[in-house]
Amino acid sequence: MIHADRLSKVFGSYRALDNVSFEVNQGEVVGFLGPNGAGKSTTMRILTCFISPSSGGASVHGHDVFDDPLSVRRSLGYLPQRAPIYPDMTVWEYLEFVAKMRGLDASTFRSRMKKIVEVCGLAQSLGKDIGTLSHGYRQRVGLGQALVHDPPILILDEPTSDLDPNEKAELIKYIQQIGKDRTILLSTHNLNEVEQACARAIIVSKGRVVADGALEDIRAKTGRVRYVVVVDEKNALKGSAPKDKEVRELLEKMKGVERVKEIPTDDRAHAFELAGEQDGDLRGQLFRAFVEKGWVLLELRRDAQKLEDVFHELTRSDERLARGYTDEDDDDDDDGDDDDGDDEEKKG
């Protein structure tokens, strides 16, 4: 349904996309991930024929983006980042305008609107000026206009960025629902959403595809699993209660442990995060070591690597460049970059 073939895009001296190839098949809901400025929006703009690639090609629903941009646009619904909509129109006027532009007749439009109002939660705001709506509602209107012609393909650029948690959850639920018979390419920063709504993800970084596959495969990509260990800080079965240094030393010495990082917790416990081999299981070993020391183990957990960690790992060099680091130093992730999409917008 969506086919991108060695897409490159150069803005002046800045290489926004570098040989990006991927395919999205019918009925797939694919998460399109990457840090800000990685080229997500650029890719989407190429797929919607807003801009042209510097080299490479793409087709949507069998239509080439160079030869037949109108057919491409007809077959898809697109929600650009930040849902830019005319502020001087009411919601109804705007959706009617879009429907007219898409060639819908009045009765089809009305019947589609029933569904859209329900799905996007617009019943209360149909008569309001878009300029007076909150960001979240504007986003809903943007989603509404993408759905108005019931397209087989949806391209959504950060559809949840301005929504509150309830709205996000609802939208994700809806995407799951419509994703059953539609093809959806969804870009987002929120990895939880991808885990909920998508079976497959494409991760881009610095204009390149760094991972593409089922979520399971991507999670396994780093070849590690994650352990969380929480030890009581106040009490011990024998001896004195452990200090965080002692726990860290013990963990670092342990065979098979690749990385130890203290994670924040309350003042009654020490919590650490470890990384271990994908195939191994360190839980028994950890338990025995703590029993030997007489420390009280409050929690011990083994997770598959979180998508978030994989994302961090795969896109870290991006972040380092942006912050002006040049040489490698040890792990400094988990600073929770809650970016807001500004950078990317400017580059477009």
Binding site: R45, T48, C49, F50, L70, S71, R73, R74, Y78, P80, R82, P84, I85, Y86, P87, V98, M101, R102, G103, G142, Q145, E345
Partner: peptide
């Protein structure tokens, strides 16, 4: 304001 993107990505 970016509305151009919305307008142009309609089939026009």
């Amino acid at each position: 304001t970016g509305t151009l993107e919305m307008l142009i990505t309609l089939p026009v």
